[in-house]
Amino acid sequence: MIYLDAIVFNLTTAALMVLMFKCGILLIGEGTVRRRPVPWVAIALTAVAVGAVVLQLAWSGAMDALDGDPRKTGWWRVVTSVFMQNGGLFGGIWNIVTLAVIAALAQWFWRGPLMLLLFAAGILLPQRIDALFGETAPSTDPRNFAGSSGATYFLAATLAAGLLLTSPHIKGRLMALCVPAAGLAMWLAQENGHGLVTCYGCLLGAAVLPLARRLPRPPVPATAVPPCGPSPAGARQ
């Protein structure tokens, strides 16, 4: 039964990511990918994650020094633990691949600086909520002391919020609404932290987008990409 529960947990977690990936593709427009600039900020973020895995392989003490175990001291752990991977070979590959894809989609929509800020919110917000409610264990954080999945799911959920608020099609908006609904259901049924951080990401994305639209370089949904290529301003993301 425990083995079956683990399979269901992993399948639902993966299905939620697939749903958010599809929301991201609808948001930026699959046909615009070739016309968008190289997402250098997302590439750099992924390179940090890959470098952390290399560090783990080269240094046996990396996990002890950099994970997020609350029994250990170190102000840096809340950040460094995101780039440590403890899900085995498959889990590590899944985390890095999803981070690379979601970060690229998020940079194309939010642009680089705001994408990094939202990713940072995905790192820090679960811990702050735990502290707010007096939790000593990371109950709302799916990282289990290490792993990038929590921040990645949070960032992906901001894309669903973007789709909800910008899509001219009801199908897209309904798909976006399914993201927080599925996340909440996963949390209630499985206590799956990925579902809860997804809800946080949707809420923050919805709150940030109206403000981001007022920036000199606002977010870039599919409808904002010129048909013959990005404008000079849009090329610098």
Rank of each mutant, 00 (worst) to 15 (best):
R143D: 03
T152Y: 06
L165A: 03
P180N: 07
L132C: 08
I129N: 09
F133Q: 07
L184I: 11
L174E: 06
F119P: 05
A137W: 15
T136D: 13
A120S: 13
S139R: 15
W187A: 07
N144M: 13
G172T: 06
L164S: 10
A161R: 02
T140P: 02
I129R: 05
G183R: 03
A157P: 00
A146Y: 12
L124D: 02
Q190F: 15
H194A: 14
A189F: 04
A156Q: 02
G195R: 02
G162V: 11
S149R: 06
L177Q: 05
L163D: 05
A151I: 04
C178T: 14
N144T: 12
E135H: 13
T152L: 02
L125F: 15
A160Q: 03
M186Y: 01
Q190C: 10
E191Y: 14
E135L: 15
S139G: 13
R173A: 01
R128E: 13
L188N: 01
A182Q: 00
L164I: 03
D130C: 13
M186K: 01
Q190I: 11
A156N: 02
A160C: 03
S167T: 07
G195M: 06
L124P: 03
C178V: 12
R143N: 13
L188Q: 12
A156Y: 01
L188F: 13
G147S: 12
L184C: 11
L165C: 06
L196A: 06
A189W: 10
A176I: 04
A151K: 04
S148W: 04
H194Q: 14
G183V: 00
T152A: 08
G122C: 05
A121F: 13
G183H: 10
T140G: 15
L155M: 00
T136S: 11
A157H: 02
S148R: 04
L165F: 00
P168L: 07
M175N: 04
G183I: 06
I170L: 14
L196Q: 08
P142S: 08
R143P: 12
A137E: 15
T140E: 01
A151V: 09
A131C: 08
A176V: 08
G162D: 03
P126W: 05
M175C: 06
G183L: 08
I129D: 07
L163Y: 06
D141V: 10
P138V: 09
L177K: 00
A189I: 11
A157I: 01
V197Y: 01
